[in-house]
Amino acid sequence: MTTVSERGGAPVERTELREILLIAADEDVVHVRQLVRKAAVAAKLSLVDQTKLVTAASELARNTLAYGGGGQVTVEVVDDGRRVGVRAEFVDEGPGIPDIGRAMSDGYTTGGGLGLGLGGARRLVDEFELDTKVSLGTRVTVTKWAR
């Protein structure tokens, strides 16, 4: 299992807002954006931070659909004792990512997009974790904290 992790670590307490959505079709990307927006408002993220998180979630949901062959997202409001935030975990059982370094770099794409999805999403959130195993699937977890 290959893992890319940034500033992860501290244990967090899950709050009661926790929802799971399937990502199986085009319109589900819109549903993911709406769910993440709802959680971001509940966690009192600023408007700019809401926008960044929802944009990152949109990129990741599309990746789950386009590269992972569909999957699911778990969106929850989390609390680490000092602050409140939103965590979204995208899971698919697709082919996995053989070369993470390249997949994370801007401009690299195997799907005909702009190649900004993963790298761009990482820049928009506070914590970014990527677990992937070739032929088994990919899990991307992002967190944004209220300031």
């Binding site: 926008t51 900004l116 761009g120 820049r123 928009l124």
Partner: peptide
Amino acid sequence: MRPAVAITLVELGL
């Protein structure tokens, strides 16, 4: 374009 969208676009690298 909304201000928050402009800020996000630049950070996204678009």
